[in-house]
Computed example of a mutant assay.
Amino acid sequence: MSLYVAEQRPDAGESVLFLHSGNVAGWMWTDQAEALPGHHALVPDLPGFGRSAHEPWTDLASTADQVAEVVRERAHGGRAHVVGLSLGAIVGVALAARHPELVRSVFASGAILRGMRGIGRWAGLAQVPLWDRPAYWKFLARAYRMPADSVDLFVETGLGIDRESARRMVPEIYDGVPSALLDGLHRLDAPVLAIVGEKEPRTFRDALGEVTSRAPRAVARLAPGMHHVWSLEDPYLFHETLAHWLTTGQPSPALLPVGPRERSTPAAR
C-alpha cells in the first residue's frame, strides 16, 4: 500500500511538498497550492488520514520515510521544498533530518518538537475518544474559524481518521521528537524557516530552538497576531509569507523576530 497524493501542475517549476496538520488531510492545502502557479505541488494524505486512512500510522520515523518516497518518485529532480503545519511541520522536520538530500527548503509552522506536558497533554489525549462524534468535529470547525464551505469535509475527514493510528500517533507526538532523530538536521544543507503564531502557547515557541540549534541554515520567526492554524486565520498572510520564502529563501519582512532563548536552546533530553 502507498499514500494517496494529490498533485497540481506537474509541468511547473520546483516541487513543493505540503504536509497537513493532525485533524484534517491534504485538502487543507488546496487553496495555498493553487496560489503558487509557478510550482509543482505534491499533497499527500498522511498515514491514517483522508484517502490514506487504509495505511496505518506506525511511528514518526516511518511516516517521514514514506513521505520521502513520495519526493523521490514524484518531485522534480527528486527534491522538494517542504511545507508543514502542526503535525505536518513535525513530519517535515523529521523528513529533513532523515533524508536531507531530498530537501530544497523547509517551512515549518507550529511544530511541538518537545511534545506537550501538563494540562495541555491531558486535554489533548482526552479528546481522542471523542473523534468518532460529529459534534466534536463541528465544535473544532467553529474553534478554527473554518469557512462554512469546508465544515462538512472537515467533519467527514475527522470521522474517517483511523482510530488505531490516532491512538499511536497522538501520544508519540505529545512525548516529543527524540533528540537522536533531530540530530540529523546537522547534515541539512538547505534553508529552514521555523515559525510559530505570536499568540500560540509558550510550548510552541520554546520548541523553535530544537531546529535552530541544529540546522545550520535555520531561522525562527513569529507570525504576528496569529494562533496555531493561521493558514485559516489569515490565508493571505500565510500565502505571502510562503511565497516570499519560496522565491527568496529568506523570511518575509511581515514576520517578527524571536528572542535568543527561542533561537538557540534545545531541550535537555
Rank of each mutant, 00 (worst) to 15 (best):
S2M: 13
L3S: 09
R9V: 02
E14D: 15
V16S: 03
F18T: 05
V24S: 13
A25E: 11
G26I: 05
G26F: 02
W27Q: 11
W27K: 09
W29Y: 03
W29A: 04
T30D: 15
E34N: 11
A35K: 02
A35V: 01
P37H: 11
G38K: 08
H39C: 06
H40A: 06
A41L: 04
L42N: 11
P44R: 09
P44V: 03
D45A: 11
G48D: 02
G48M: 05
G48E: 03
G48K: 04
F49A: 05
H54D: 14
P56I: 06
P56D: 10
W57D: 11
T58Q: 15
L60V: 11
A61H: 04
T63S: 14
Q66Y: 01
V67H: 08
E69C: 06
R72C: 04
E73K: 13
A75R: 10
G77H: 05
R79A: 15
L85C: 12
L87H: 02
A89S: 15
I90N: 11
G92D: 07
V93P: 01
L95A: 07
A97Y: 03
A97L: 06
R98S: 07
H99F: 05
H99N: 15
E101F: 03
L102D: 01
F107V: 07
F107E: 09
R117C: 00
R117Y: 01
G118K: 08
G118D: 08
I119R: 14
I119Y: 07
W122R: 13
L125M: 10
A126D: 02
V128R: 06
L130Q: 12
A135P: 01
A135H: 02
L140Y: 04
R142K: 14
A143S: 14
A143T: 10
M146I: 12
V155A: 05
E156Y: 00
G158Y: 03
D162I: 04
R163P: 07
R168I: 00
M169A: 09
V170D: 02
G176H: 01
P178N: 01
A180V: 04
L182G: 08
G184N: 01
D189Y: 01
P191E: 02
V192C: 05
L193C: 08
L193H: 04
A194P: 03
A194C: 08
I195C: 12
I195M: 14
E198R: 10
K199C: 12
P201C: 10
A207K: 06
L208K: 09
L208T: 03
V211M: 04
T212I: 12
A215F: 04
P216S: 07
R217H: 15
R217G: 00
A218V: 01
A218E: 03
V219S: 13
R221F: 02
L222M: 15
P224I: 06
P224A: 10
P224S: 06
G225W: 08
M226C: 15
H228V: 03
E233N: 07
D234L: 08
L237K: 08
H239F: 02
H239Q: 11
T241K: 03
A243E: 13
T247R: 14
T247A: 14
G249I: 01
G249C: 02
P251G: 04
A254F: 00
L256E: 15
P257Y: 06
V258A: 09
G259P: 07
P260N: 07
R261E: 14
R261F: 07
E262N: 08
E262G: 00
R263F: 00
R263L: 14
P266Y: 01
A267L: 11
